[in-house]
Amino acid sequence: MSTNNARTLRRAQAGTTEPAWVKWTLIGVVLVFVFLFLVLPLAAVFTEALRKGAGAFLEALQEPDAWSAIRLTLLTAAIAVPLNLVFGVAAAWAIAKYEFKGKAFLTTLVDLPFSVSPVVAGLVYVLMFGAHGWFGPWLQANDVKIIFAVPGIVLATIFVTFPFIARELIPLMQAQGSEEEQAALVLGATGWQTFWHVTLPNIKWGLIYGVILCNARAMGEFGAVSVVSGHIRGQTNTMPLHVEILYNEYQSVAAFAVASLLALLALVTLVIKSFVEWQFERQEKAAAHLPPERPTP
């Protein structure tokens, strides 16, 4: 009887899980793949940067051109991320809280910059503001430089990071509905109060998530920025562009030293992202354990 039961149990398990050797083979294949494609490239950045010792590494980072690249990268992100944050919140509010014609189409358009090649993204601004572009002659007459200058770099960065925050917030706010906001308004809160005290705490983690991904891309963007920058050393070189120039000049250690700062940024981004996901799950679980506030219809 008991052997019979054990056999049935084994058969049932054989149907819903894999044999141990299959399981461990699959895990092994994944670990090898992850090691080759993700761990090795990351490790290579740091070992190449330290190839000639810590002294050469630090020296490379103290170059004035490296510093100006770091400053420009920080400046670009400091402009692009807040603008896309305001846009992301506004777009998510309009799309998630209301019904209107063309909503699905608008949502698709918000995603559009993700599917456009970065090189094409850079090119469109050259066609608008370049010497031969739409506004080129007017800009030249008024002595305003956009292409091969900082404004072009900022614009191209805004374009490629455009959807990041909006696309995190739209599904989140759609899932949360607007009952809590309506309750706040009914109780006499103003629109701003409702947003600050009801909506914002609810979307906090989604917002942070979007911001750190947006920031990582803004600081790391290469293709779009490369088209509009003009590669003027000390003036229009962002960190990724500086990496390219050093690499092409066979200054491998210096190139990887600057690259290692960007790799650190990526690692910090991943750590914050994991933390946010953990917090978000905790919030969801806490919400699931709350007693229902009212009988469900």
Partner: peptide
């Protein structure tokens, strides 16, 4: 492993390029 899967999203493409 789960966290590392997103590395290609977070690592600037130029860094990935020279590293590979």
């Amino acid at each position: 492993v789960d966290a590392l899967v997103d590395l290609p999203f977070a690592l600037p493409t130029a860094v990935a390029g020279i590293s590979l």
